[in-house]
């Protein structure tokens, strides 16, 4: 009964945010397979420290643990970081970008956006993902990443600058 109660509360406050956890992990470790390991490990940690959870936003609490688990994983697996894009791929992307409008173009655009974010350094990427994809406030991001809100703001600004440069053809003004 009591174990069921813990389980039920864990389900209702933490496990319902599994998609958010997966999204963050998938963006940070950049692979489906590794995201699986990391989220699993994060959930084990979450359940283990669940009696220390004093209520509040279950999503932020879980994302904090996921983020820390990702950082540990990245430290350990630095060598497995995917290589930067080759010139060839970049050329392909550019030529795709100049093809006539249609589904292909939109897919190519989405791919460009995805790659631009993936190429950001981790400390920028996590802020962009939490803000622009997860839709969290600066305050929530500051709690998850363990940095002051001012740092969230400045990192976001720098990340946006890089994204603007990489995606300038997509966001150019239609004159």
């Amino acid at each position: 009964m009591s174990f069921d109660a813990v389980t039920a509360r864990f389900e209702a406050t933490v496990l319902i945010h599994l998609d958010s956890a997966w999204n963050l992990a998938r963006w940070l470790v950049r692979s489906e397979h590794d995201a699986q390991d990391v989220v699993q490990e994060a959930c084990v940690r979450a359940l283990r420290s669940f009696d220390g959870f004093r209520g509040g936003d279950g999503r932020c609490w879980l994302l904090t643990i996921v983020r820390n688990t990702c950082c540990t994983w990245l430290e350990k697996n630095r060598r497995h970081e995917p290589e930067a894009l080759s010139e060839e791929t970049l050329d392909q992307l550019e030529s795709a970008g100049s093809s006539p409008p249609g589904l292909l173009l939109r897919e190519a655009e989405a791919e460009q956006v995805r790659e631009a974010i993936e190429e950001l350094p981790t400390e920028f990427r996590e802020i962009v993902v939490l803000r622009e994809i997860e839709g969290l406030s600066y305050k929530e991001i500051s709690a998850i990443a363990g940095i002051p809100a001012g740092t969230v703001m400045s990192r976001l600004a720098r990340a946006r600058k890089r994204l603007e440069e990489k995606l300038s053809p997509l966001i150019a003004e239609e004159a």
Binding site: L18, D19, A21, W22, N23, R26, W27, E32, A35, Q36, V39, E109, A110, Q112, V113, R114, I117, V128, E132, I133, L163, L167, L170, I171
Partner: peptide, 13 residues
């Protein structure tokens, strides 16, 4: 808007 429309939201499998 470009990021919101272009970047995937990865849902758990």
């Amino acid at each position: 808007v470009t990021v919101a429309t272009g970047a995937p939201y990865y849902k758990a499998p």
